[in-house]
Simulated assay, not measured.
Amino acid sequence: MAINQTSRAADEQLSSSQRIKRALSHGKQGRISKNTSNKVMLGVFRVAAAITTLVLVAIIAYVVINGLPHISPDFIFGWPHGVNAEGGIWPTIVSTVYVTALAMLICTPIAVLAAVYLAEYAKQGRLVGIIRYAADALASVPSIVMGLFGYALFVEAMGFGLSMFSAALALALLMLPIIMRTTEEAIRAVPRYIRWGAYGLGATKWQVVSRIVLPSAFGRIATGIVLGIGRAIGETAVVLYTMGQAINLPITPMDSGRPMTVHLYLLANDGINMNAAYGTALLLMIIILAFNLFARHLSRKSK
């Protein structure tokens, strides 16, 4: 017992570099030299990165080759006709932007306030751990499960029907853990000495949070919001069960609509107009890519 306590005390006195050297010296000596093993693993990493990049490029190229010839102003700004498989997709674009903006307005205040509570006010303990675990579990819920839950709760139980509001509430639940966890990490990344300087000048806790911490973390918070919006735009099952499939321009939040993802699913599933399906997929991919690039721009700007 005394020997173990002595070894622990000695370990605590070692610096981080000394601990690393000690761990490496006590490790098993491999049969392959360090340079050879490093080159092998570097090659494995490069191959994995190349495969990932090639798969992404192949998907993008396939969609662009098949969808670009069918992109035109009439296709973007026109209305569907026939069995909603011909013509343009303007109502679906409006429905997509409408429901995504509404979901963002619902989700962002709740997620940001929850993140501020976890990072600044809550005592780090079991309750905070449970909240973080619940957020991580919510982020891993399949979209179809969230769609069925939204249908049972918002459409049936609460009586909102197949509407933009029901779909926005369901999408807000999907966006919530992304924005909350990103905001919490952004707030924790703000240096402590900034808070100490504000406290030293007589600022209150809320003044420090609202005027110092949140403005300093705004870039990363905005990045999380944009990433959440990008995921909401690409969801199909959630809006399919909560918004409906009506081809119309929604005016009020209680109106139904058909987002681009549902329109693409119906066109591809029925196979009635694959050209329009490829064109819709290309526009949807461009929108999601634009949001991701905007998020990267905000992240770099904040750094």
Rank of each mutant, 00 (worst) to 15 (best):
W206Y: 11
I221L: 06
K301F: 14
A10F: 07
L42Q: 14
S210A: 11
G161S: 05
S72W: 12
A85L: 06
L283V: 10
V57I: 14
A48P: 03
I59G: 09
G271L: 14
R231N: 06
T36E: 12
L214A: 12
R296S: 00
L102S: 03
L102W: 03
S15W: 06
V112R: 00
H263N: 13
V64W: 08
V112W: 02
L227T: 00
A290R: 04
A139Q: 04
G234M: 11
G147W: 01
A281P: 01
A232E: 04
L127N: 10
I60F: 15
T53Q: 08
L266F: 06
E86W: 07
Y199M: 05
A246Y: 11
S210T: 12
S72F: 08
S302R: 05
Q124Y: 07
G27A: 15
L214V: 12
L284E: 03
A48Q: 07
G30A: 15
E156T: 14
G271A: 03
H263C: 12
D74E: 14
G244D: 06
Y151V: 06
I286E: 02
M146G: 00
A232H: 02
D255S: 15
Y241T: 11
I187G: 00
R192F: 03
G147F: 02
G125C: 07
A101R: 02
R296L: 01
T252L: 13
N292C: 11
F291I: 04
V112T: 08
A58T: 06
A157C: 06
G67F: 04
A198Q: 09
G244L: 11
V209D: 06
Q245H: 13
A295F: 00
L214D: 10
T183G: 01
M254V: 14
L289G: 08
L266R: 03
G82S: 07
F77C: 04
L249A: 06
L127P: 01
L176N: 00
L264G: 01
L284Y: 03
M175C: 07
H81F: 09
A134C: 12
L14G: 09
M158Y: 11
V83N: 13
G200S: 08
A85T: 12
M285G: 12
V63F: 11
I65A: 12
M274N: 06
L56A: 13
I59Y: 08
P215R: 11
Q124W: 05
G271V: 09
N38T: 09
L153T: 15
V112Q: 02
S143H: 10
L201E: 11
G224N: 03
Q245G: 13
A103E: 05
S95R: 02
G200E: 10
Y193N: 05
R19P: 07
